[in-house]
């Protein structure tokens, strides 16, 4: 047996097929060239983007599309900063017009400092967006009932946090993520909390479909190198999941035979 080739291991969301299991954000970089270089190094095929008012005093300022080509990289518009279903729907309608694309990331957040997912607001916005024809990948609490309810509403991906947004604390809830995953049939992603490559690998080893992260790359000392690390961590974690880890045992089990020893 040749083993599993990572290149053949695709996943799909809303009928679209992707090879990379790493989705990266485009925020918090030093500048647009660094954003572009980090995305390139990460191998991501999907990037999250925000929708904001144009700065009318500087209409010729470079825009994200000048550096990250939406024809090559799938833009996943988010609703960051929206606190009501109406704001989320208006924002994503604008995004759909700007990008001609109905696959979106919904996030309805509570107040700082936690920016914890506001689940009542998220349910309301998800229902409104789905009714309006959007395909909704949804950021949510690590709550099995909420995850199930979002799937039943018609969300196309369930994306709980591993730790608060931008905290870089790593997955604080691997057992809970595993339990939620048991009852979710659509793609399941960890969407916040990854701090370094091993965190991304752990998410993939748990069986996540993909990982979404931003700050772990953008706030690394060398974002482009960390982007590359994340690419390999996600691939390694995925392969480890497919390979199936060895059973844990309480005690040693030597790898070298205990017979044939010299005396």
């Amino acid at each position: 047996m040749d083993g599993i080739n990572a290149a053949d291991d695709t996943w799909s969301v809303a009928g679209r097929i992707f090879h990379s299991r790493l989705i990266v954000g485009t925020g918090r970089y030093k500048d647009l060239p660094e954003t572009a270089a980090a995305i390139e190094a990460s191998g991501a095929e999907i990037v999250t983007v925000a929708v904001r008012r144009v700065n009318l005093s500087d209409p010729k300022a470079p825009m994200l599309q000048d550096y990250v080509d939406p024809k090559k990289i799938t833009y996943l518009p988010n609703t960051a900063g929206c606190f009501t279903a109406n704001e989320a729907v208006r924002t994503l309608r604008l995004a759909r017009e700007a990008g001609g694309w109905n696959l979106v990331k919904l996030e309805v957040l509570g107040p700082p400092p936690l920016l914890y997912p506001d689940m009542p607001g998220t349910f309301e916005a998800a229902a409104a967006l789905i009714k309006d024809g959007f395909e909704v990948m949804v950021y949510c609490a690590d709550d099995p009932l909420a995850a199930r309810r979002l799937q039943d509403l018609g969300c196309v991906a369930i994306m709980p946090l591993g730790a608060p947004i931008g905290s870089g604390l790593g997955l604080q809830n691997p057992a809970m993520l595993s339990m939620i995953m048991e009852n979710v049939t659509v793609p399941f992603l960890v969407d916040a909390g990854v701090g370094t490559a091993s965190d991304a690998a752990i998410a993939m080893e748990l069986g996540c479909t993909a990982v979404l992260l931003n700050s772990a790359i953008a706030h690394a000392r060398d974002p482009v190198t960390m982007a590359k690390a994340m690419k390999y961590a996600v691939q390694a974690g995925r392969l480890a999941y497919l390979a199936g880890r060895m059973p844990r045992r309480m005690g040693a089990d030597p790898s070298s035979p205990l017979t044939g020893l010299i005396r």
Partner: peptide, 10 residues
């Protein structure tokens, strides 16, 4: 009127 565009975001 609201005139918007895409910017970096996570």
């Amino acid at each position: 009127l609201e005139i918007v565009h895409f910017i970096g975001g996570g």
